[in-house]
Write a protein that binds this DNA or RNA. Structure first.
Length: 603
DNA sequence: AATTGCT
């Protein structure tokens, strides 16, 4: 009998095997190739289903959690488990023997500093208006509901606990693509549900697959690797992934620098299916031979354009191409970012095999929900100007808490200096940048999120991916040199359906950005000051070509005539291998706001 | 020239 990795774990704990009784199967789950894993999957862990040969492809063993007419799970379903009290009460029955007690990630949810989460009154129809574009061979069609996707009973319960009612556009498209085993390059704004989009299929795939036993002890053999460019972002992804994999038996471990390595090593030794990591620490672990990538089946790069830019590219190449990771085609690779410059796409195609390109219209960010302002401010006037903005913001408080303001500066020294100056002048400010200890970084972020210090001065360490609810105002005290960085920065506000404000201080030093900034603002229907247009007209065009960026934030470089010789630019023309997934060409900018408000856990 | 990313 073949012995899978998980079998070795589950054999003792799961003596009963799959449920023997067949159960009611709702119509939408009938005749599906694979189905909810048996209840024991929650305990038995990955590949419990793979062990259940009778269950594979046999509709009648589909989990019986569906309660007839009510589209809800029965909380009292006992299915052989030791959880009689329903999903919220861990009874700690016999199934937990020999297993580490899994902390319930849903109980320590960050309490909302201001406002409250609402999961009702959401206009999900607004999703239909979000433009989505796919290209590549045989693109699997999108799904409309989580039930259509059928990720398995345990994951379905976690979806419910997350209060995700309906998949977001990027999830509707990504999940079927990923479940079909296809490689993917996805352009989607942060806040669009990317993390869940790649975590769900990975978790589901690990639960259903059969994998060989790890060949060596004391070495971790993850099945999935998720890389991100900052420690805080890796932590955030890890926290999300823990929620999605709760009680599935899938183990998620995070590894990043600045934290004691020993604890991370202990976690790794206890077994890992999904490793979330920053590049530096992972390279260290690989060189110490404490992690092997030879069993990797899934590779996901978040903020992929950053991961492949000059600073990170060597490390990423080392991890992906020069260690023991299986090549493209053997592993499944998924790249995500809100921005995907053409050069980076070209680089990235090294890592991909016959991939699908997916671009989802900007959601709840730079175009619609954020009001962008640019003000001409000399270097010497920046501080007093900022003070004016902060004073104005101070009156704009909710529930007695000052609205959160995120101030981006270009240098670490500049961040220290500005924080100091703000504090000296009585502003409740803190700062985050790469020269701070990890403890200081995490403390600063926490203190900002909770509203204790509602002003955060940050370098680009905080520009990408971080989900900080209730940021009312992003100030580009120093503008970045790259328009894509600007897009990522202002994306920290206007989240979760709230409107946001982004103010930039512009002067001669930013001339090179004038053109692309003015173009971007124009695309977003923002008021472009006349002086900025003059700057833009004057400057020789050195910025990025944002063609196609207005509606999609990206475009498949394979469609470019320079790449695809002989082919005319059939962008939008519905060529043979193209599949435009949106019905209405109009980019709905007004109604999405409500839809974005489900929960802040969207990315 | 600057920002991330192992001790």
């Amino acid at each position: 009998m073949p012995m899978s990795w998980a079998d070795s774990v589950s054999a003792v704990e799961n003596p009963a095997g799959a449920p023997s009784k067949s159960a009611y199967v709702p119509p939408h789950l009938r005749n599906r190739p694979s189905a909810d894993p048996p209840a024991q999957a929650s305990y038995a862990g990955p590949s419990a289903l793979g062990n259940d040969h009778s269950g594979y492809g046999v509709p009648n063993v589909v989990g019986s959690r569906w309660s007839g007419q009510r589209n809800e799970y029965q909380s009292d379903y006992a299915g052989g488990g030791g959880r009689g009290g329903g999903w919220n009460g861990r009874s700690g029955g016999g199934w937990d023997r020999g297993r580490d007690r899994e902390v319930n990630p849903f109980t320590d949810d960050d309490s909302e500093p201001v406002g409250e989460q609402e999961s009702s009154g959401i206009n999900f129809d607004a999703y239909e208006d979000i433009p989505v574009e796919t290209s590549g061979d045989n693109v699997p069609p999108p799904v409309n509901t989580f039930a259509d996707i059928d990720l398995g009973q345990a994951v379905n319960e976690n979806i419910r606990r997350c209060k995700y009612v309906k998949p977001t556009p990027v999830q509707r498209h990504t999940i079927p693509i990923s479940l079909a085993g296809r490689d993917l390059m996805a352009c989607a704004q942060t806040g669009s549900g990317k993390t869940a989009a790649f975590c769900f299929p990975i978790i589901s795939g690990i639960m259903r697959g059969q994998f060989p036993r790890p060949p060596r002890p004391r070495v971790a053999f993850p099945l999935a690797l998720i890389l991100s460019p900052t420690r805080e972002l890796s932590c955030q992804i890890h926290d999300e992934a823990k929620k999605f994999s709760y009680q599935t038996g899938v183990k998620v471990v995070v590894a990043y620098g600045g934290a004691p390595i020993n604890q991370q090593l202990r976690e790794l030794e206890r077994g890992v299916h999904i490793l979330v990591a920053t590049p530096g620490r992972l390279v260290d672990l690989l060189e110490r031979a404490r992690v092997s990538l030879q069993m990797i089946r899934y590779l996901a790069l978040d903020e992929a354009d950053r991961m492949l830019d000059m600073g990170f590219e060597p490390q990423i190449r080392k991890i992906v191409q020069q260690m023991d990771m299986p090549p493209p085609g053997v592993r499944q690779t998924m790249l995500f970012s809100a921005t995907f410059p053409k050069e980076i796409q070209r680089l990235a195609s090294d890592f991909l095999s016959n991939y699908i390109f997916l671009a989802v219209g900007r959601v709840g960010s730079s175009t619609d929900l954020i009001v962008q302002r640019v003000e001409y401010v000399q270097e010497t006037d920046k501080r007093s100007h900022l003070m004016d903005l902060l004073h104005a913001q101070r009156d704009n408080s909710v529930n007695g808490k000052q609205a959160l303001t995120l101030v981006f500066v270009e240098t670490k020294k500049g961040a220290d200096a500005l924080e100091h100056w703000l504090c000296m002048n009585g502003f409740p400010a803190t700062a985050i940048h790469g020269d701070r200890t990890q403890q200081e970084r995490e403390y600063a972020l926490r203190s900002f999120k909770t509203g204790n210090t509602p002003i955060l001065v940050a370098t680009d360490v905080a520009a990408r991916g971080l989900d900080i609810p209730h940021v009312a105002h992003v100030v580009n005290f120093d503008l970045p040199n790259d328009i894509d960085d600007y897009v990522h920065r202002i994306g920290r506000t206007g989240r979760a359906g709230k409107t946001g404000l982004a103010t930039a201080f512009f002067n001669e030093n930013n001339s090179s950005l004038a053109r692309s900034l003015s173009d971007l603002m124009q695309e977003a229907n923002q008021e472009v000051p006349a002086w900025l247009s003059r700057f833009a007209a004057r400057s020789t065009y050195g910025g990025k070509n944002r063609r196609g960026g207005g509606r999609f934030g990206g475009r498949d470089f394979r469609r470019d005539s320079s790449y695809n010789r002989g082919a005319t630019d059939y962008y939008g023309g519905g060529g043979a291998n193209m599949n435009s997934g949106y019905a209405s060409g109009g980019y709905n900018t007004s109604s999405y706001g409500a839809a974005a408000g489900v929960t802040s856990a969207w990315d």
